[in-house]
Each structure stands twice: as C-alpha cells, then as structure tokens.
Computed example of a mutant assay.
Amino acid sequence: MSVTLPYPWLEAPLRELLAHQRGHAVLLAGPQGVGQFELALALAQAWLCEGAEGHAARPCGTCASCALVASHTHPDLMVLLPEALQEELGWAPLEAEPKASQAKPSREIKVEALRRVVEFAQQTSSRGVAKVVLIHPAERMNAVAANTLLKTLEEPPGMARFILSTEAIDALLPTIRSRCQHLRLSPPPEAVALAWLAQQGMPRPEVLLAAAGGQPVSALQLQQQGLDAQAWLQLPERLAKGDAEALAGWPVPRAVEALQKVCHDALCVVTGARPRYFAPECFRHARPSLAGLLAWSRELSRVARHEEHPWNAGLMLESLVSDAQRALHSDAI
C-alpha cells in the first residue's frame, strides 16, 4: 500500500476490506474517535485508484485519481456530511448557497441530500472506474432520507458503490444494514494509542486517552481544544467544591459530555467498580450517594437531549456546576 494513512492502526482494516470486498456497499461501525471517517475516505480512494495493479497495492496515492480525492475535487466521489461536520472535517458543502437565516448548521442528513446521491449514482462515471458515495455519520439520516437511500441500495446502478460510516449501527434501518458488508472498527491497543499520542507531542498521554474512553483521535482533539492532563484530573475535585470556573468557556455540549464521564466514574467508585475516565483518587473529596448520582445522571441525559437549545452558556454552565456539587456531596444531604 503506497498511500500513507493518517493513523497506523487503520492499515489492517483497510487491507481486510480490500482483500475481502463483496457487493457494492460497506458499513463501517465503531467509535468516531479512532479514525472511522478517515478509513472510509481511504477505502473510497482505493476504489477510485487508477495507478495500481491489483487490490493489494491500492490506493497508490500518486495517480491522478488519488490526487483528486486528496484535493476533494474527484468528480466520481460524493462525500455526504451533516452541515455541522462539514467545516470540522474539511469538506465544502455540496451547494455553496448563502443561508437566509442565522440558524445553526444542521446535524441531520436530510432527504434533499439523498436525492442528490441518487442522481449522482445514476450518472456515468467521469473517469470510468466507479462512482463512490461516502455517508458519514449514517445514523444522522432522518427517516425519509434513509428510505430514499434504501431504494438505491436495493437496485444500485452498475458502477455505484457506497460506504456508510456509523457510530450507532442500531439506529440504522435493518434493511439498510442487511444490504451492506459490515466491518467493526475498534480502538487500537492501548500501547499503540499511547505511542501515537506521544509522537504527536502529548505529555502524559495516558490521562487524555482515558478521558477519551480509549479513543486516540478524540484524545488528541481534547488537547487541541485546550484541555491538559492536570486540568482533567482536577475536574472532579473542582466540581465537588463548586468551583464555578471549572467549566468556564466550555461549549455546553462538551461540558455535558465531561460531566457525564464524572458521573459515570463517581457511580463506579460508589459501587466498588474501577473508574474508566479518571483515577480513583480524583474523587477523594466527594461524598456522593447512589441515589443522588442516579438522579444527576438522569438530569444530564435530559440536558444532553437538548444540547442544541440556544442556552445562555454562562448561566447554563453555572447551573451545571451547582448540580455537580450537589450530586458529588449527596451523601451529606
């Protein structure tokens, strides 16, 4: 394989896909923080590659087709993302039309986009190799969009191939799942992840790797967002003390996710299990009760369902810290 993948642990699953491909559609299922989108894009590049002889050598990374994929301009590749992910992943909108309102970018993949997919798949390949559609994350398709895709998956045009990437495979229609070849993508071994994070210049990588649930790409993103190992380890103690600055400046969705991890590990400590995201000593100043933590967990789940609500971020974060302090000392109430 000539092309260099962004994450070394993706090489084996890509080889497996290329060696054992069957059918016209692949479904990649697993956590996003291990490079799921990057694997899907590498597979699309391999399917469109023009410069290699035989599957084992694809993608070459040097042919004209590979260059077009790298520049996001390949005429036979359609990458379908929710508006909210397009900028983050570096892919321009399908149609660069000015928005009439100041509404937040959509987190859904809507039926209009799937109609464009159907039209795209039915067109003749510009370079004569294949037509490839990459949908990520596939669980973001609404019900109408998913059914629109299903019709094309059932009777695909001759040169069309599909890659669906999902973190929530059970959220997809069973009829869509049944028409795809599946590959489950797991986090790499801890030693591999730690070595890679150390190569990226991360001090104490084991702390943020644990904070990200063993997902190295997510761990690197936490560092890029300004989080360091010491700040993460201090978070439960600062919340237990009601430190209003503990979450200052955090986007509400990111703060809620961090609080859910604190709540999860506090529940582990109370029930005698090993914490997942923090060291056990991070909870030495907390006095939580099981009932208090369960109530807090339910409240955080409620807030997470409405994380896109236009909250006053400052007031919301103060309220979240107050709730955390109360829950982490619920045994004293």
Results as ranks from 00 to 15, higher is better:
211 A>H: 03
123 Q>E: 11
161 R>Q: 10
226 G>N: 08
196 W>D: 07
196 W>F: 00
217 V>T: 02
150 L>W: 11
126 S>Y: 15
112 E>V: 15
211 A>R: 05
226 G>Y: 02
189 P>F: 08
129 V>I: 15
183 L>F: 01
205 P>C: 01
192 V>Y: 02
206 E>A: 08
163 I>R: 07
157 P>G: 01
230 Q>A: 14
192 V>H: 06
185 L>E: 06
214 G>S: 09
226 G>K: 09
198 A>I: 01
119 E>L: 09
127 R>F: 13
180 C>P: 05
198 A>S: 13
184 R>K: 10
112 E>A: 13
129 V>K: 15
193 A>Q: 04
143 A>Q: 13
142 N>D: 15
196 W>L: 00
176 I>G: 04
135 I>L: 13
172 L>G: 08
190 E>S: 06
115 R>C: 01
151 K>V: 11
128 G>C: 10
178 S>N: 02
118 V>S: 13
127 R>D: 08
221 Q>P: 06
129 V>H: 12
117 V>R: 14
203 P>W: 05
216 P>A: 12
151 K>N: 10
136 H>I: 09
165 S>G: 14
198 A>E: 12
154 E>T: 05
227 L>C: 07
176 I>Q: 00
187 P>I: 03
153 L>S: 09
207 V>W: 00
116 R>K: 09
148 T>H: 13
216 P>T: 06
130 A>I: 11
142 N>Y: 04
142 N>W: 13
183 L>A: 06
217 V>E: 11
126 S>H: 15
122 Q>P: 06
184 R>Q: 00
222 L>Y: 03
115 R>L: 07
229 A>M: 04
158 G>W: 14
208 L>R: 10
212 A>D: 01
119 E>M: 08
133 V>W: 07
210 A>M: 14
191 A>Y: 01
183 L>C: 03
218 S>M: 04
159 M>N: 02
216 P>G: 00
181 Q>G: 07
231 A>D: 13
170 D>Q: 15
198 A>H: 07
211 A>E: 04
164 L>D: 00
176 I>A: 06
213 G>I: 08
174 P>M: 12
199 Q>W: 03
134 L>G: 09
174 P>W: 14
170 D>M: 04
187 P>Y: 01
192 V>P: 07
222 L>Q: 02
214 G>T: 06
195 A>C: 12
204 R>V: 04
170 D>V: 10
156 P>V: 14
179 R>M: 05
189 P>D: 00
144 V>Q: 15
213 G>D: 00
184 R>M: 08
146 A>S: 15
141 M>G: 07
233 L>Q: 14
126 S>C: 11
198 A>F: 00
174 P>Y: 09
232 W>Q: 08
208 L>S: 07
129 V>N: 11
147 N>Y: 06
232 W>R: 07
122 Q>W: 15
163 I>T: 09
193 A>N: 06
135 I>W: 08
170 D>N: 14
162 F>I: 00
149 L>P: 04
